[in-house]
Amino acid sequence: MKTVQRCEWVEGKPHYYVAYHDYEWCQPTHDEQELYQWLLLESFHVGLSWQLVLSKYENFQAAFSHFDYRQIAQYQEQDVLRLMQDRGIIRHEGKIRAAITNAQSFLKVQEEFGTFDAYIWSFTDGKVIQGEGAGIPSRTLLSDQVSKDMKKRGFKFIGSVTIYSYLQAIGVVNDHDRNCAFK
C-alpha cells in the first residue's frame, strides 16, 4: 500500500494534526467565521505549540460560542472569568481578552471593507502566495505589513510571526513542501 506524501513536519503527528495539514492548512478560506476562528486560535498559539492548540480545538469551540465573533465581541467580564476557569482551553487572561478585542476589531474591519475576507485578501490582491517549499520562514515582509496594519486597527496578540502562521492557516500563503500531495 502506497503512503501519501505529506510535508515532512507532519510526520509522526497525531491524527487531528494530520487532518489539519491535509484539509485546513494552506487551503484558501473566505468564510468569515473560519477567518475569525483561525485568528483566535493563532493568537492562543503565541509562545506555545500548535499541536497543543489543535488538541484543544473542540474545547475552544465550545468555550468561545462556536467561534461566533458577533457573540464574542459582546463578551463581558463574567465571560472572561468563566473562560479563566475553563480547564479545557489555554487559560491566559491576555489572550482571552485579546479574543474579545479581536472580535470587536474584526467587526470594525467588516464595516470598513464589507467583509474581513475582502480586507485580509487585499494584501495579495486575492492571490495565493506560493512558498518555496524549501524551509518555511517564520515571518515575511507580507506578515510584517499585515501585522502592522492589524495592530493599527486594534487587534492584539498578532505579531508578524503569528500573522504568518495565520496567513498559512487561511491559505493566503501555501507553504506545503514541493513533494506534498496537498500542495
Results as ranks from 00 to 15, higher is better:
Gly12Ala: 11
Tyr36Lys: 11
Gly114Glu: 11
Ala169Glu: 01
Val146Cys: 10
Lys156Val: 13
Phe67Cys: 06
Leu54Asp: 05
Lys183Ser: 13
Tyr75Arg: 00
Ile158Met: 15
Glu132Ser: 02
Tyr16Gln: 12
Ser122Leu: 07
Ala19Val: 12
Gly126Lys: 06
His30Val: 10
Thr140Cys: 03
Ile96Asn: 02
Phe182His: 15
Glu111Pro: 02
Ala181Phe: 15
Lys56Tyr: 04
Trp25Tyr: 13
Phe123Gln: 08
Gly154Arg: 09
His66Ser: 13
Tyr166Thr: 06
Cys26His: 02
Tyr36Arg: 10
Val172Met: 08
Lys95Pro: 11
Val53Asn: 07
Ser49Lys: 03
Gln168Asn: 14
Glu111Trp: 01
Leu48Tyr: 07
Ser165Glu: 07
Leu107Trp: 04
Gln168Tyr: 06
Glu58Pro: 01
Lys2Ala: 14
Leu142Val: 05
Ala73Trp: 04
His92Ala: 11
Ser138Gly: 06
Phe44Pro: 00
Ala118Glu: 11
Ala169His: 09
Glu8Ser: 09
Arg153Phe: 11
Lys56Ser: 03
Arg97Trp: 04
Gly171Ile: 10
Thr140Leu: 02
Pro28Val: 10
His21Val: 10
Gln85Lys: 15
Ser65Thr: 08
Val109Lys: 02
Glu32Trp: 08
Lys2Gly: 12
Cys180Ala: 13
Cys180Lys: 11
Asp175Ala: 09
Gln145Thr: 14
Lys108Cys: 14
Trp25His: 10
Ser147Tyr: 13
Ile170Ser: 00
Phe44Gly: 00
Glu111Met: 12
Gln130Asp: 02
Lys148Pro: 01
Ser49Trp: 02
Gln74Phe: 00
Gly88Gln: 05
Arg178Gln: 14
Leu54Gly: 05
Tyr16Glu: 15
Thr162Tyr: 04
Ser65His: 12
Asp149Phe: 10
Gln78Leu: 07
Leu35Ser: 03
Glu8Gly: 01
Lys151Gly: 04
